[in-house]
Amino acid sequence: MTKKALTLIFSLIILLPVIIYFMAWDYYAINIPKWDDHALKAFIVEYAGADNWKEKIPALFKQHNEHRISVTRMIAWADFTTFGALNFKHLMLAGNLLLLGVIPLWLILLLKNKKPLFALLPIPFIWLTLAFWENMYWGMASIQNFGVVTFTLWTFYLCLNPKPIVFTFSLLLAWITVLTSGNGLLVLPIGVVLLFLL
């Protein structure tokens, strides 16, 4: 069998759990708010009613319990302005797509370490499981909890790159991570430790 054929077969096998995961998600997802999702409705009202940027910026960046959910708010506002209403299925989809961002990182790490493509096979099967069912079907939590993991891993990978432009981008990504979830604050001290270990 040729290398191209093997690559195609492995790629299709890698896609299989992604397809199954999103088919299961689509079958059960309902456009209803869950718990903290109601705070996003209040944000939309506050942000839409703000007269100027001095009122809009605090609405976007203010604390929500122990978290700053600015990324979730931005996605919610984009959804609201695009579709004319806040659709919680769209928020769930955005969060679940963020979960996929870990797979290309694993691929990059494997290729960088000269590992074959088939070494990536277990990752989507382990990563995309129904163990995430609560976050899968909760708009705010899916963006917050899946996003913080993906952004954190990418921040760590990029901050260890010696190129100044890539390191600068990692700082921007670290800031986005902090604005995704309270857990994102940990990206800063852990990133500093990783830099000292270089």
Rank of each mutant, 00 (worst) to 15 (best):
P17L: 03
I19A: 15
F22D: 01
A24L: 11
D26C: 05
I30D: 12
I30W: 08
I30Y: 09
N31K: 03
I32P: 00
K34C: 10
K34T: 13
W35P: 07
W35Y: 12
D36H: 08
D36L: 09
H38I: 14
H38D: 14
A39Q: 09
L40R: 02
K41S: 10
A42K: 07
F43D: 02
I44R: 02
I44Y: 06
V45G: 07
Y47T: 10
A48I: 06
A48G: 10
G49R: 12
G49V: 08
N52Q: 11
W53Q: 12
K54G: 15
K54W: 14
E55K: 13
K56T: 03
L60I: 08
L60N: 03
F61D: 07
F61G: 05
K62T: 12
Q63Y: 06
H64E: 12
H64R: 12
E66M: 09
E66H: 13
H67N: 12
H67Q: 07
S70V: 03
R73W: 05
R73M: 04
R73K: 15
I75C: 05
A76T: 05
W77S: 01
F80M: 11
F83I: 08
N87F: 12
F88S: 02
H90N: 11
H90M: 11
L91V: 04
M92F: 05
L93D: 00
L93I: 09
A94C: 10
G95S: 08
G95K: 02
G95F: 01
N96T: 00
L97M: 09
L98D: 04
L100W: 04
G101I: 09
